[in-house]
Design a protein around this nucleic acid. Structure first.
Lengths: 192, 192
DNA sequence: GTGACTATTGATTGACGGGTCAATTAATCC
DNA sequence: GGATTAATTGACCCGTCAATCAATAGTCAC
């Protein structure tokens, strides 16, 4: 692979890990560079400034998530219920929790308070999640599609917040089940 | 009122507003002090250090929320359904969105990544919300109480995240309705 | 009024971190 | 294997900020 591409990747990975471990955006470029095994100056050479590095890390995480969902959907076939379950399961897949990704995720919401681009990226993620859910909800719940999709999406994000708070206490498996339970009820699958 | 008490209040209010407006914990003591109409040194006189000021602000916000819920419950009487609705409505009451409280809320999750006390406070909030919900869910859904309570709580927090992202786009009224819709379904109120 | 104590100020300190840049090293080409 | 270009370093500059502290203003008891 081209050296510069690899360098960028290393720096982005180091950024995510550093944010993840410290739980903060208060991370120095020096720390990130050291973790990537590189001098501080190089980070500026490749990304221009610190915010650009943060944004690149954000895009990377969102892309990973998007890929995870896409793969899960491909594996799920055509049945709407199976596809919905696949989206939820992919949202809580193990790799979403590696390398401090959750804490990074949380901090990206903070970044979005000051960075228009960060806000745009998160809004895009929201839209995609909503539209993914809506696509397979529509044949099942018709007019209630948007409302149900919003509810599921909200619950997924809320669960992530809990993860951010109790790094170890919450477990991915039951978290997914919990969202699926909401889905089952919305579909009227006789749990009431 | 005693002068020192008033000063503390002013400084705490200024802290919340400053965090709320900038959307970040990257707020200088100088900014906070200026907003409170006071010199920087005084903030240290009353709170010792910056983190203590942050924690005091956090306690203040959580206390306000707690009071809002308690008042709503008192007004709601004894009917479990009415009480549950009251909790949800209180969670999205207007005063929860004043003075940058939502952005502050979000940043407290970030603070909890590095401050044990902040984590403790947020965990306490989670527990109280859960137990409030569970208390009135139990007569309605029995064994499913904890699961349903967790779902509702997760959805409330998730909705707050949306608020944090789109300060104006999301509206409190429909947000509350959305959570109440989840509740209605969990109660089997024939929406499916 | 005087003295003793507290509240308050704001200048100052010292550490820290983003970003720059001249110098060095590595890679590439002819 | 020299010449040219690109990658990389790390010391340095400059602004910022938490925290301190000496000095002043205010308050109250007597």
């Amino acid at each position: 692979m081209a050296k510069d591409v690899q360098r960028r990747r290393d720096l982005i990975a180091a950024t995510v890990r550093e944010i993840g471990e410290t739980g903060t955006l208060n991370v120095t470029v020096g720390q990130i560079a050291r973790r990537a095994g590189v001098s501080p100056g190089l980070a500026f050479h490749y990304f221009g400034d610190k915010e650009a590095l943060f944004l690149a890390s954000m895009r990377s995480i969102l892309r990973d998530y998007g890929r995870g969902v896409a793969a899960a959907l491909r594996a799920a076939g055509r049945d709407p219920r199976a596809r919905l379950a696949a989206i939820v399961r992919a949202s809580f897949a193990d790799n979403q929790f590696e390398g401090g990704a959750v804490a990074a995720w949380l901090n990206f919401y903070v970044l979005a308070q000051t960075s228009e681009e960060a806000r745009r990226l998160l809004t895009l993620y929201h839209r995609r999640l909503h539209s993914n859910l809506a696509h397979d909800l529509r044949p099942l719940v018709g007019a209630r599609t948007d409302a149900v999709a919003a509810r599921l999406a909200g619950q997924i994000d809320g669960t992530y917040l809990r993860f951010a708070l109790n790094r170890r206490v919450v477990d991915a498996e039951p978290a997914a089940d919990q969202v699926l339970a909401t889905l089952a009820e919305a579909l009227g699958d006789g749990t009431a």
